[in-house]
């Protein structure tokens, strides 16, 4: 086995996990919303990018932009629908409603795009880079760089800008934020739009690696939420580290032990974390601290 190659693969997959999770991390930290429709939003992002390329003949970068824009719109729609539940912090109903939202998205995508698997063809997927014993595609390199940029940008925005301060304030106490004269629903709108845009961006960058199906949302979301939970709920830096760690773990476990049971193994990791550090996973959305 080529250890160096597996490490490279792990780093790439890890950045993919982290990028897919980043929107959810912010959503969970700021609005305490567990979005079970996240995987279906990922699927929609990938299919919109594919559709833009297949139907209009636009190049791949334009498809990425289209997917991100539509993702942001989808996020904004979600915010409009869930506003009442978000403001009243009815967490149980919020979780269920996102499941229903995902189910509706999957049904709509099936009607719109059909049951056949498709390929989101990125020109960068065909270009490969060989460095000594390892190789990767240009698409992979773009993915890693984009992930680092998104995480750095989000972290800076949260801790250094006025907008970030407003988001952290909403996370702490929505009612107090409203008393302070800020429009809470606007801030939520921004957070939800970011979630939608971020997951669509991730989908447009990650999906060229594998065929896409309208039913793939369910599988996609699993690793994402392990990343979110292991990273410490709502922690931006934690998500990045957790994504990278799980990427390396799955690459090495898949190569050394058994690819079929990788998901189960990651779950075992999650259990270990829960048993060893239950406090870190308790329901206290504290990403701002």
């Amino acid at each position: 086995m080529n250890v160096a190659q597996q490490l490279v693969n792990g780093v790439i997959i890890g950045h993919a996990y982290a990028l897919v999770a980043v929107g959810w991390t912010l959503l969970l930290g700021a609005a305490r919303l567990v979005n079970f429709g996240h995987g279906q939003m990922y699927m929609i992002g990938a299919f919109v990018a594919w559709w833009v390329m297949a139907a209009t003949g636009l190049p791949y970068p334009a498809a990425v932009v289209a997917a991100v824009l539509l993702g942001a719109v989808l996020g904004a729609v979600m915010q409009r629908l869930f506003l009442r539940l978000t403001l009243s912090q009815d967490l149980v109903s919020l979780m269920i409603v996102t499941l229903g939202f995902g189910q509706a998205l999957e049904g709509a995508a099936g009607l719109a795009f059909g049951p056949k698997p498709q390929t989101l063809a990125s020109p960068f997927q065909a270009m490969s880079v060989h460095l000594g014993p390892v190789w990767f595609t240009v698409q992979d390199a773009i993915l890693v760089v984009a992930t680092i940029l998104v995480f750095a940008g989000l972290s800076l925005a949260l801790h250094r800008s006025w907008l970030g301060a407003a988001v952290r304030m909403v996370a702490e106490d929505p009612r107090l934020t409203a008393l302070g004269g800020l429009r809470v629903s606007r801030i939520y709108m921004g957070i939800f739009a970011f979630e939608g845009a971020a997951v669509a961006f991730a989908a447009a960058l990650v999906a060229p690696r594998t065929p896409i199906l309208t039913s793939m949302g369910f599988d996609q979301v699993v690793m994402t939420f392990v990343v979110v939970v292991l990273g410490g709920i709502g922690s931006v830096l934690g998500s990045y580290v957790a994504g990278l760690g799980i990427g390396l773990f799955t690459a090495l476990f898949g190569a050394l032990v058994s690819p079929a049971y990788t998901t189960a193994a990651v779950f075992a990791l999650l259990i270990a974390a829960m048993v060893l550090r239950p406090g870190a996973l308790a329901a206290s959305g504290s990403f701002a601290r």
Binding site: L85, V97, G107, G110
Partner: peptide, 20 residues
């Protein structure tokens, strides 16, 4: 199959958003 999924999802979202 897809239409039924859509109905199920929409019903769930509608019920929770309109009368939780």
């Amino acid at each position: 199959a897809y239409g039924d999924k859509l109905v199920l999802g929409v019903v769930l979202v509608a019920v929770l958003c309109l009368c939780p």
